[in-house]
Design a protein around this nucleic acid. Structure first.
Length: 674
DNA sequence: GAGCACTGC
């Protein structure tokens, strides 16, 4: 049955030709639409062909769930237990066997980490497949740059196309078996940017694999749309009243639009005649809890049409079945980091037009199971003027962490052969931040504490706080705080229509110094819940406690995993992870914690101005404390903050008060004054 | 006194 399915995939027909090309070329760029089966089949073809006899076939993915679920699927196809022949490796979760595993699905981050930590040539892998390369995540870009370099070293001097083609298959292979350990690279991408990948790898061969998509009829607006939520509302009811059954997926930029459209659809739906088809509205966005998001997966009850309002979470990360109609507003929100050469910078999160590649992806969501329709709330002209694809992440995020990791390898980002080079301001800003953290010295050499920081899987700011905490003997508390701050979900849940209850619940944990100590209060309170009870009772007690206090338990559970990992790193770098302030009680602890955090966030600081606003210590920008912060209504002489976000104003988030005297005792700020 | 796409070590 499974074998039959494998055989029927569009890619199966081209199997022999594909393998032949991969055999002939060191680098292959494989273009395949969704549904081609490339991600599950190519690794198996390579395995069966014996091309990877000497080592492991690694397939990198940008997302954790993809890596684990693909591994499960492929190991089933191979009729083996997950973790034997086919395994996976994502953070906190690895299932593979030193001897048995030949196909390993992993996140690109894991492979980058392996490269950075082991400093070798990834000798255990004979084929590395970089999947979803078109997404151009920061990690994918770094991986491609390093793989290119590693391959040159492992395969000897760069072979020319001619050499590769003349190579008499087996002879050549046998020779290299004896003398070296060559590496094959396969880049997999959706239809765009193939040329660019090919060029980057010295005109690598591009192969095309057909996908299996049902036709989707596209309708553009005749005139440009001013109010896209209103247009979405009208379009939805037009579909609802005129068109055949089938669920509707509406792409919107953010939570706010989703919630307002949800209300209006429900209002209009309630006025439909009783005999009409009902409407079930589901919402989907990252900040919403998991259980709420998962409601979109259940089929609508009979007599109802399901309408899903989603952000671009439904564009790549999540696939919902049953979608026949897509309404695309053509908008999304994108985070962009604005670096300042003077140091620091801030994120902006603004609504903008999507790219052609996103539009195509969104449209495709209507044709997964049968023919569909896509209503674009923008003109065809507007579509044509969209940019092909988004800016690669390396050009729009902070490079502090990347540059520190490269420093460990003795490399410079500006000298690396990456597909898109970040601008000088962005690099200068990161270097300045690293210098402030004491990770590099004035001559840009990595320092001993910089080495320590790089071992922590954290933003250098937080790694710095941990390293600093040993001076103040409060490492344990810092680990508590930092693990929550670096968890991927938010600690405090926002439920817009229960705002008051939420803010009441939050008051219980509020610490007068600000958000960092508040987080510590929450973690400590959470840890006490269910103590001494059976594990099952404790689990449900914690769950109930989180619900009652509007806390996101996912964040606390993930923080717990992160903390364990950080404790292990502390041990490796010779730090006492259990260090805690004992004598003189709470005030001493608060001071120690804020000073430790302050070392990491010294560059993220602002002083109160006479007019009541806050002005950055470095950068001179006026910032406002985010209303969600414990300090939002207070005026204190000096603040430190986790980050800045520009939406309507420049907001500082994750804010704590710090004494101005901290800055005169800080090595860098002190020096500046002198 | 106001609002936040998505990943990852």
């Amino acid at each position: 049955m499974i074998q039959e399915q494998r055989h029927n995939l569009p890619i199966a027909k081209g199997k022999d030709a594909l393998i032949e090309e991969i055999r002939k070329n060191d680098v292959t760029v494989l273009l395949g639409e969704t549904g081609s089966g490339k991600t599950t089949q190519i690794p198996q073809y390579i395995l069966e062909s014996g091309l990877a006899r000497n080592g492991i076939i690694a397939i990198t993915q940008p997302r954790r769930v993809a890596a684990t679920s693909l591994a499960a699927r492929v190991s089933q196809e191979q009729n083996t237990h997950l973790g034997d022949l086919v395994g996976y490796a994502v953070r906190f979760d690895e299932k593979h066997d030193e001897q048995k595993t030949k196909i390993k699905y992993m996140t690109d981050g894991m492979l980058v980490r392996e490269m950075m930590m082991q400093k070798g040539l990834l000798g255990r892998y004979s084929v590395i497949i970089v999947d979803e390369a078109h997404e151009r995540t920061l990690r994918t870009d770094l991986l491609l740059a390093k793989l290119k370099e590693i391959q040159r070293k492992r395969n000897g001097k760069a072979r020319t196309q001619d050499d590769a083609e003349k190579g008499k298959g087996k002879e050549k292979e046998n020779n290299s078996d004896d003398s070296s350990n060559p590496l094959k690279i396969v880049i997999m991408s959706a239809t765009i940017d193939a040329e660019k990948f090919s060029k980057f790898f010295d005109n690598a061969k591009i192969l095309y694999v057909q996908g299996r998509q049902h036709p989707v009829k596209i309708y553009h607006s005749a005139t440009s749309v001013l109010d896209y939520t209103d247009a979405a509302l009208r379009t939805f009811f037009q579909i609802h009243t005129d068109s055949a059954p089938g669920d509707v997926l509406i792409f919107l930029p953010g939570q706010e639009d989703i919630e307002s459209l949800q209300k209006s659809i429900q209002l209009f739906a309630s006025q439909l005649p009783v005999s009409a088809l009902g409407v079930l509205v589901c919402t989907m966005f990252a900040a919403q809890d998991h259980s709420q998001n998962s409601k979109a997966f259940f089929p609508a009850p009979s007599g109802m049409r399901k309408c899903i309002l989603a952000t671009n979470i439904a564009e790549t990360s999540i696939t919902i079945s049953g979608i026949k109609y897509v309404i695309d507003t053509g908008k999304c929100k994108e985070k962009q980091y604005l670096a300042k050469a003077s140091g620091g910078g801030f994120d902006t999160l603004l609504t903008r037009d999507i790219t052609k590649s996103s539009a195509t992806q969104r449209t495709g969501r209507a044709g997964r199971e049968g023919p569909g329709m896509c209503f674009r709330l923008y003109t065809e002209e507007a579509f044509n003027s969209m940019s092909e694809s988004g800016e690669p992440e390396i050009l729009r995020c902070s490079l502090t962490s990347t540059i520190l990791n490269l420093k460990c390898l003795g490399e410079k980002l500006e000298e690396m052969d990456v597909m898109d080079k970040p601008d000088r301001d962005s690099i200068a800003s990161a270097l300045k931040t690293l210098w402030l953290l004491g990770a590099i010295d004035a001559s840009q050499q990595i320092t001993p504490s910089g080495f320590k920081m790089s071992y922590f899987p954290l933003e250098p700011q937080y790694a710095c706080s941990i390293v600093a905490s040993s001076t103040y003997s409060c490492t344990s508390a810092i680990l508590d705080i930092v693990s929550v701050l670096s968890s991927s979900s938010k600690l405090f849940v926002d439920i817009s229509d229960q705002r008051e209850a939420v803010s009441d619940a939050r008051k219980k944990f509020r610490h007068s110094s600000g958000d960092h100590m508040t987080v510590l209060n929450v973690v400590r309170a959470y840890r006490e819940i269910g103590e001494g009870e059976s594990s099952k009772a404790a689990k449900s007690a914690r769950k109930e406690w989180c619900r009652k206090h509007f806390l996101n338990e996912r964040s606390l559970i993930e923080a717990c995993d992160i903390r364990k990992q950080l404790v292990e790193v502390c041990r490796r770098v010779g730090m006492d992870a259990s260090a805690a302030v004992k004598e003189n009680g709470k005030e001493r602890e608060e001071d120690a914690v804020l000073r430790s955090i302050g070392h990491g966030l010294a560059g993220n600081s602002a002083f109160l101005q006479p007019d009541g606003s806050y002005k950055q210590v470095i950068g001179q920008t006026i910032v406002k404390i985010h209303p969600g912060s414990a300090l939002s209504e207070k005026k204190v002489a000096a603040i430190i903050y986790d980050d800045l976000m520009y939406t309507n104003q420049i907001y500082a988030r994750g804010v704590s008060a710090i004494s101005k005297s901290f800055f005169s005792s800080h090595p860098v700020f002190n020096q500046r004054k002198a």
